[in-house]
Each structure stands twice: as structure tokens, then as C-alpha cells.
Nucleic acid binder design. Structure first.
Lengths: 340, 340
DNA sequence: GTGAAAGCGCTAACAA
DNA sequence: TTGTTAGCGCTTTCAC
């Protein structure tokens, strides 16, 4: 597990190019202040020797690592049941790569891991952290803030303490929900219900708020609690049908929930969208396109969220004039398929 | 993006504990050969100062990094359309964490990235690499082998050159396929078809082989090419129904394919499983449980694959007597639901 | 514009 | 058992 081949050092390159180590270092780091012929000679030597800088040695003196930690709090397996996470990661990776940063992935699985992550971040191994924490009561965000590492959160954090100045990137959950519900209303539906997500996550709360924005008090009795899972969607849909048989539209907190609802609707002999129109949220392709009928849903640009998080972390200081809002909210779009 | 708080060094701890740096180093690295009272004193000093070793300094001298790269070749978006990758990652992460190793994630997106990954691995930034390369013609594996980093592959690599001694972890695709087909035969089906996966991936090839193992030449005309996508499954199923209307069972190369096939079957008025029994592969929960009817499928323990890969990389040398087969193949299990 | 020299914080011989 | 010392490979003043 240890390096075997003795890799060339700055020294070696310097010798080959007939210059000093300092000059090689300058060339390797951009070449400013070095005359052209020398630059050329050094470049060639680097090439010939296949020189790659030793990052450890460099970090030791610069105190920078060109590495960013991505922390995923994952108390539920749910995170892994959908491609959401992978897509964000892809966006993050692209952006980091473009700026020669490495991505160190920290997956946490409960309390024990929190200490580990806190230690790692406080240990100054990375230049910053991108944190995904789904739950309102998650102690991780606080831990991380205390570690003193520049951090950007994925999704609006929901803790209650007076932590301000938190930088985060989120989708416009509330606006997207409003669009969905308005679409249902525009279809002429009058008994529009909402199956919520797990309300300990801000995304679920915000989507519920969006629903209320449009339906007001009228919708109160038509709100049923779900949990972002298909099973939860089924349960909620049954409850809904029993309680309000005249329901003619459902806005589900996500596509998985909608899929569950669709199954119950079919089972109960309701036609979609003729009898009951259904809208989901996420536009999770493998789900939304495979349901019967295909799901109308609210799309968020997940990959862009990831990219933006990384960008904010890397260039935050430059671009952000003091007083800039700490949260960036990305727009959503309604994708019409057959279910509504 | 740079560390701000000046973190305590070994020196500081040594001063506080009234010992030499070497002693502190010994304690921090396990404490062997240091007398108890000193160990205690050093431990306390570490605690009080909140000392965390500087990994860069350590790596510089030990030439170890306690870090492993996970390389995901992802020419297709497909990798991200299913939770497969996330689950493997989870298994890997758990195992690495248990051994205090960090996970550096390298996502590649085409040729340009290959050079970057090659450089990174050759640069000796990590102690080893775990590589996921789906395609037969992927140049990445070769590149990586040339980088001289200990490597374990996820899935049987399929390149043609005479590269031996490749360590990999795979599911028993062939055996799983055999189980699936045998199950269909056991159900009394006589016209069993197979919709293949993308045959430039070994998993698809192996599943096809498994099908042939059971059906022999009898099955030849009932093999239709798919590509692991639902759309491919639909296309293949249509072709199959047109060509062999008497087909009474389908083994699809994965769950996504099976989902597509199910839709076409319903569309054509065939009942599942009464008229046509269907089996998938993967047991991708969000798909397999949501299809109508729920899908009988072959489960692989994806997380365990990941864990095993990491274990092999970290302890490979110790556990492996010379001559041990380089590939580890994990068993699969048939999960019965309603579709067969 | 270029080179010489001084560390960055740590581990690993080697001495004591 | 403990301390002393010499680097690991690099960047960065500071002279030249």
C-alpha cells in the first residue's frame, strides 16, 4: 500500500534543467517572474521526468490542500434510495475538478461518526466542506460550524439556534410547490390535497408552505402526512380517500410518494388524471417516467445545485460583497407528463 | 479557504507534557514502548491542547496517506440513474472509515478526465485505488495499472489484453442468471426469453452466459438485445412479442429493463405472471417494489461488494497467499415477488 | 529575474 | 525507555 517507484523531486527537475529549485517551483506554480527560455527548459525537464508535485510537501508549507470535504449525513437509507445524492455529487465533482480540487467524501452513519467528522474537519485536512444534512435536529451542522471550516450547506438548514450567516444552496421548494398546486387549480380541480414529506426536513416544510400559499385554509383538511417513501404515499392516499372521497387532485411531496399514491388510486379504481390528477416533486427520472401514467412533476436542477455549492465554497469570498444573502435558491420547473 | 486558527503542533504538546517530540509522536501513534505515566501525561496534553496531527507533515515522511481513491468511470449517465453506485460507496466508506482511511472520490467524464486521473494516481496522493469501469473498451483500467497504484476493480474487468493478476470483486452474474432461468423453467415455462443488457459490459455478458447455461441452444432465438434501460426493455419486448408471440417467460438483464418489458406486456394485454412470467436482476428497491406487479428479481449484495473491495485493498497483502484467485465473486439470491 | 537558505510538522534512525 | 537529530519535498523570503 506504499509508493514503490521513487518519484522525481523538484531537485531532480532543477538539476536536469540546470536551474535552482526555486525557479522550478515558480514555473510549476504558474511561471510568473521567470523568463521565457527558462520556463521552456523547466517545462521540458518536468515533462521528461514525469514530475508530479508532492502535495503533502506543498500543503505542509502552504497550509492549503486543494481538497474539499463532502459530508453526507445519512441517518436514513433514503439518501441512497434515490439518485439525488449522486447527481449533486456529480455537479460538485465537476466544479472542483475545474479548479484542481480533490473531493474527500465523508459519509456518516450516526453519532459515532459525528465525532470522527468533527475531528477530521477541525484537523485542517481540507480547505472547506460541503454539507448535506437532511434533518432539523441534526447535530452535525453545529459541530461543523464549530470546527471553523468554511462551509456551504446543501438544502436550507433547519436548526433552531440563532446561527446566522449560514451559506446554503437550495431549490425553490416553496415556489415549485406553488407552481404545482396552481397547475392543478388551473386544471379546474377544486379538491386539491397534499401528501407531505417527512416534516423534519426543510424541503418538506417548504413544499407544504407552498401548498398553503395557494390553497390557504381551504386546503387544511386535505393535508395528509407522508414521509417521502412510496409506502408513506400509499398510506396517506388511503387515508385521504377514506376521509375525503371527493378529492380530485393530489400534490405529493416527491415522486416516490406520488408513485405510492398512484398505486392506491389504481387499486381503488380511480382514473389518473381523469378522476384524480397527481403531481410529484423531484423529477426523478427512473420513477417519474416509469409510473403509470407517467408523472407530472416539479423538476429541480440537482446537478447545478452541487456545482453551485462548490463554486460558492471556492470563490465565496471574492464574489460575495458583504451583506449578500447567505442562501442561494435555484428555480424549479414544472414538467408535464400524463398524470396532471 | 485557508486555516486560520494556528493549530498546536507536536512541539507544543511536547513542551506541555515535558517530554520530547519523539515521545509524543510515539504516543500519538499507538504508545508502544513508552512507559505508562508518560503516556498518560502526553495524552492529557494532547487533550488539553486539542492537538490533531498534521497529515501533510506525516505523509511527507511516511509516504503513506491513509487515503484511497475511488474512481468511477461514468461515460454514461446511467451510473447515476440507479442507487447501485451509492450503495457500493457506502460499503466502501464504512470499511475505509473502520481503518482510518479517507475516501477521495474521482468521477470521470470522458477522455480529458482520464489524463487527470492518471496523473493524480501516479502522483502518489493515495495509497490505493478502487475502480469502477463499466465498459469493455475503457482505457482507464490500463492507465491505472500503469500508474503503479494498488488497485481493486469493481466488477470483472473486460479488457482483452493479457493483463493478469487483476484483483476484482463481482457478483455472481452468471450463477444468478442461471437461478433466475431455472426458476422460470421450474414454473413450467417452456418459451423462456432473455433481454440482454449492454453487451459491452461484463455483467451483461455474464448474465447472458448464465441464460445459455440453462437454455442451451433452445434459447437462442429467444435472446433479444437490450441496453439496461427501460426504453431498451420496451423495444426488446416488442420485438420479442412480434417474433415469438408464444413467449411465456422473460429474464431481463436488470430491473430497469424488466420494468420496460412489463409496460409493453401490459400494453399488449398479456397478464403477468399468468401469461408471461418476468424476472429482473439487481433488486433495485425503488424499481422492483414499484412495478406492477412487483418484480421477482436477483439480488446482489451491493454494499458488501463495496466493503469487500476496500478490505481487499487495505489488507490484500496479508490475507492473500500467493496464487489466490484474483477475483472474488459474491453470491446472489433470488427474491420472489409477484412477477414470476 | 534568479538562487541560496530557512523552515513547514512530522517520523525514524541512532545515541544515550 | 527516552531524547537528539536528520531529513521528507516543497515554498518563500531575502540577497544577489
Amino acid at each position: 500500500m506504499t509508493d514503490t517507484a521513487p518519484r522525481p523531486t523538484l531537485e531532480a527537475v532543477a538539476a536536469r534543467a540546470g536551474v535552482s529549485r526555486a525557479t522550478v517551483s515558480r514555473v510549476v506554480n504558474g511561471g510568473d517572474g521567470v523568463r521565457e527560455p527558462l520556463v521552456e527548459r523547466v517545462r521540458r525537464a518536468v515533462e521528461e521526468l514525469g514530475y508530479v508535485p508532492n502535495q503533502a510537501a506543498r500543503s505542509l508549507v502552504t497550509r492549503r490542500h486543494d481538497a474539499v470535504a463532502v459530508v453526507v449525513a445519512e441517518p436514513e437509507t433514503r439518501v441512497f434510495a434515490d439518485p439525488f445524492f449522486a447527481l449533486q455529487l456529480r455537479g460538485i465533482s465537476k466544479e472542483l475538478t475545474a479548479h484542481d480540487n480533490q473531493l474527500v467524501l465523508l459519509l456518516t452513519e450516526g453519532r459515532d461518526d459525528h465525532a470522527r467528522v468533527g475531528r477530521y474537519l477541525a484537523g485542517g485536512h481540507v480547505d472547506g466542506a460541503l454539507v448535506f444534512s437532511l434533518h432539523l435536529d441534526d447535530p452535525l451542522p453545529g459541530l461543523i460550524q464549530r470546527a471553523g471550516v468554511p462551509t456551504v450547506f446543501g438544502g436550507r438548514p433547519g436548526w433552531s439556534d440563532g446561527l446566522r450567516d449560514v451559506v446554503y444552496v437550495d431549490s425553490d421548494n416553496r415556489g415549485g410547490a406553488r407552481d404545482a398546486v396552481r397547475h392543478l387549480v388551473g386544471l379546474g380541480r377544486t379538491r386539491v390535497a397534499h401528501i407531505t414529506g417527512a416534516l423534519d426536513q426543510t424541503s418538506a416544510v417548504d413544499r407544504l408552505e407552498g401548498f398553503k400559499d395557494v390553497m390557504g385554509d381551504a386546503g387544511r383538511e386535505l393535508v395528509v402526512r407522508g414521509d417521502f417513501t412510496p409506502a408513506g404515499g400509499e398510506r396517506a392516499m388511503r387515508e385521504l380517500l377514506d376521509r375525503c372521497p371527493d378529492v380530485d387532485a393530489v400534490f405529493a411531496a416527491n415522486d416516490l410518494t406520488a408513485a405510492g399514491a398512484l398505486r392506491v388510486l389504481r387499486e381503488r379504481g380511480r382514473r389518473v388524471p381523469e378522476d384524480v390528477a397527481v403531481i410529484g416533486f423531484d423529477d426523478m427520472l427512473p420513477i417519474a417516467e416509469q409510473t403509470d401514467p407517467p408523472l407530472t412533476t416539479v423538476r429541480q436542477d440537482i446537478e447545478e445545485m452541487g456545482r453551485l455549492m462548490a463554486r460558492l465554497l471556492l470563490h465565496g469570498d471574492e464574489e460575495t460583497p458583504p451583506g449578500t444573502p447567505a442562501g442561494v435558491v435555484l428555480p424549479t420547473t414544472l414538467v408535464r407528463r400524463a398524470s396532471a
